[in-house]
């Protein structure tokens, strides 16, 4: 089935577009791909990218080349929860390697693989600007910092049992795509 944004997302997109000069709609491509990834299964399929191209009146290749350049866009399906563990510099000095090893063994996956229950994908990522609280990982919109084996046990067990994490973002903060007041630039 062809992807189609919900009415509420479409109205968010209109507000998003109003924040860029009227003749520079392509500037909204990265935010729009984030929205598409969130709404259409956590990754960007060719159909999703074609749909985004159509919404911004771009050639599909303009979307593919961008989607393939940025690491936050997944081109393959992932588990429901993507654990993105930092492996760079200060995190490595503070035990990132053994933490990554612990997480993959605990879930029973290799890097980038989806766990058999479909819940988890573990990815190694580069520096997330969280070096003072190493080792750390990103889960959805949140950073989980000062990781220990105990903390990982707790998080993974709770996610497996479908419990909500208190580290999940507060929904009332979700106003990213509020539009500018005033006139657009010209």
């Amino acid at each position: 089935m062809n992807p189609t944004f919900s009415e509420s997302t479409l109205s968010n997109i209109n507000r998003l577009l109003s924040r860029y000069p009227a003749d520079k709609r392509k500037s909204a491509l990265l935010p729009l791909l984030h929205m598409a990834q969130a709404e259409f299964g956590g990754y960007l399929s060719p159909e999703t990218m074609d749909y985004v191209a159509q919404l911004l009146t771009l050639r599909p290749i303009e979307v593919y080349e961008v989607a393939s350049f940025y690491t936050m866009f997944h081109k393959q399906p992932t588990g429901k929860y993507v654990l993105e563990v930092c492996r760079t510099g200060p995190c490595a000095l503070n035990g990132a390697e053994s933490i990554i090893d612990y997480i993959t063994r605990k879930i029973g996956v290799t890097i980038n693989e989806i766990s058999s229950d479909g819940l988890f994908t573990v990815k190694e990522v580069e520096c997330l600007a969280s070096c003072g609280t190493a080792p750390m990982m990103q889960l959805g919109e949140r950073y989980i910092e000062n990781l220990t084996e105990q903390k990982i046990d707790d998080i993974i067990d709770r996610l497996k049992h479908g419990e909500r994490l208190d580290i999940e973002p507060n929904p009332e903060n979700s106003i990213l795509f509020r539009s500018c007041q005033g006139q657009s630039n010209g």
């Binding site: 924040r19 791909l33 690491t71 866009f73 520096c127 990213l176």
Partner: peptide, 11 residues
């Protein structure tokens, strides 16, 4: 006007 724009992961 001030627009907050988000990237998508690229040093």
């Amino acid at each position: 006007d001030l627009t907050i724009h988000v990237g998508a992961g690229a040093y």
